[in-house]
Amino acid sequence: MFLAATFALLVGLLMILVRAVKGPTVYDRILAVNAMGTKTVILVTLLGYVSGRTEFLDMAIVYTLISFITTIAILKFIQKGRLD
């Protein structure tokens, strides 16, 4: 069952990737990056559960804590044209 969930997530990754590559506007790509981060967190947790190692959770925490900052940086650059 966990394998099925993993593959469902992989299909999701593929669809997100298509949107990120095609994505006519920059906002499509931003959403794609964001969704990719979320999917990664879940996939890491799943893989960790399947293999029974708790260290995987550390990685999931890293992603949840810092992956949104990229989105903020991109959006700020689009809105203000600068980062400082």
């Binding site: 997100i16 990737l17 990120a20 920059v26 790509r29 794609a32 990056v33 990229t70």
Partner: peptide, 8 residues
Amino acid sequence: AAAMLSGI
């Protein structure tokens, strides 16, 4: 797009 794709 290249920057964001490199993030992915």
